[in-house]
Amino acid sequence: MKIIIRLLKIIAVIIFLAGLIVLPHYLKFHYQDLLIFLTVNVLVVASYRIVTLTGEWSLIHAVMMGVGAYTAALLFKNFNLAIWFTLPLAGGMAGLIAALLSFPLFRMTQFYFLIGSFAAGEAIRLTWMQFIVPFGGSGGLSGIEPPMIGSIDFMDPIPYYYLALGVVSACLFILYRIEKSRIGLTLHAVHWKAPLAQSVGVDTWRYRALAFIIGSFFVGIAGALKIHYLGTITPNQFGIGFMVFILIWVIVGGYNTIFGPVIGVVVLTIFDESVRGFGELRPAIYGGVLIISILFLPLGLESIYTKFLTLCGIGGNSSDGPPP
């Protein structure tokens, strides 16, 4: 029985991966675009999850994505650096800013941290707005191009999608490894009972900061990935509006495992497309879905899957620490 389930799982994964690879060829141009942004957003929510692992909900994640995006844009415009260099440098810059911010921010917890991270993020974003040189003010920057290798033009959605898929998969794999490592275990511990973790020698400040830096690093990469395709960047792309979308994806998807946020972003993106016809009413529909899911599905969409497994008797442990 167990072997069969295992086999089925492996087959499912292979079909899923093959599907991801052939998918763009069957989509219209508009949906190919969307697929690329969805891929980037998967990295955004997965990296947000590592920040929330310690139990702190930050409101600066969207701005950190902007830090990465602006870094990539400026590097490209001023030094003509190719995407291969801007991606890691964007991540590095976001990680560095996060490291600097963690000194003031992690003196706070919970409500104070939420508000503090919001304030710090807004201050950064308003700085982009205020200074035309080098950030382009509220109009932002444009003309950021994707790379060309030989005859492959990454301006085309399909090659760029493969590039994004590759980068995001690699990042997700690393995030997954971190969560399953002893660092991930300790992050969980800091979340559930910080004083207990402290009392046996865990430096909770360091772990909180570490999670924040890792999350920012990867969302910085996501920002660079998005901006190289989009070509233009403005401060408003990374405002509280986008931050709210990140929160919605994570919360509607569920945040007990790494799959929850990913399910959330995929399902809600599809949902968002299907209500496109409602035009300006869309945010209200989003708001309604958000409230309904909080009230009736507090553990998120992933809990449906877990319940389904339990019903089928396959069950298994819903806790997500590393296997003993």
């Binding site: 002893r182 275990l185 511990a189 207990l196 620490g321 003993p324």
Partner: peptide, 18 residues
């Protein structure tokens, strides 16, 4: 005061890695 959502094994493991 325990890490309620973790298994007994994981609880002690946190102490080991701390």
């Amino acid at each position: 005061t325990l890490f309620q959502e973790m298994t007994v094994f994981e609880n002690v493991l946190v102490g080991c890695f701390a």
